[in-house]
Design a protein around this nucleic acid. Structure first.
Lengths: 145, 145
DNA sequence: TTTCGATGGTTACAAATGAAACCAGTTTGG
DNA sequence: CCAAACTGGTTTCATTTGTAACCATCGAAA
């Protein structure tokens, strides 16, 4: 009988790894600020880019638009970001971090980098290269469709 | 100011890829049999191994035990698996696919393999090697803690 | 043996999620 | 100019998920 070896099945391996890594990382910002993952992504997106629309945020971080909508609402409630209406298109709003939002972002960046550094420190240089190249290749393959 | 580049941030890249791949793959078994992901994993685990306990299933596929419990309940409802009490430890139950469960498994395996094959076909041989080695290295790194 | 901490598994409840309907504003084609 | 199709974003509702409490059983130690 034909058998599928889960341990070698790519979708399964990817999901399992991503889940483990992401779960461990999330404890950092959850404990620190009580942020959910969509909220953290929104914060990071805006911190990195400065100003974005909700749609752009969704595309950048592959979040469903309802996730974005709710994350933005929560960050706004905390006064970590503000919305500014677009001049030409009144459906669009431009999101920007406030001082408080920026402060939180600045605090999180080193933690995120440290987390990644520690994770990668467990790998050899060639393994790091392999992961980086492999993921890039897959990203490219999926992008094309 | 120090900035985190999300596109190069490992946890983020992993999650995004896994989500995309897993989501696309899941449409296959969702459309075919109306299976959820935990149910599919349970089916695959049992198909591959023959007989497992719920705890073993959870470990193998990194599923929370409530997920396992519910997936098993559903597959049992469909009469795709049966539970047999352990002789020595009455808390434990051994799960096995029924004829119907096995039939479904046999039908799914080629679809899963085809999906993976098509995905990998978009990569060069060295890219495939990179992904495989990189993931293995990460798996090892996480395993150690 | 009895008691107490672990373990396999289920259940109840709360929070996160996604699909689809929705609102408001915008573009396009007739 | 106006209706129809579309787009940015929100809301509603049903489903999925996780946490924590739970039940039953087991093993070890007093």
């Amino acid at each position: 009988m034909e058998i599928l070896e889960l341990e070698n099945f790519l979708p399964y391996r990817l999901y399992r790894l991503a889940d483990a890594v992401s779960r461990e990382f999330s404890t950092i910002y959850r404990e620190r600020h009580g942020l959910t993952r969509p909220e953290w992504r929104t914060l990071s997106g805006l911190g990195q880019r400065g100003t974005m629309t909700a749609t752009a945020l969704g595309e950048q971080s592959a979040m469903h638009k309802t996730k974005v909508s709710r994350a933005v609402a929560e960050l706004e409630r905390r006064r970590w970001l503000t919305r500014t209406a677009d001049e030409n298109d009144r459906r669009v709003e431009h999101l920007t971090l406030t001082k408080a939002g920026l402060a939180a972002y600045r605090e999180m960046v080193p933690l995120a980098k440290a987390f990644e550094r520690e994770l990668l420190a467990k790998l050899s240089a060639s393994e790091r290269a392999a992961i980086s190249d492999g993921l890039a290749a897959l990203e490219g393959a999926l992008g094309k469709g």
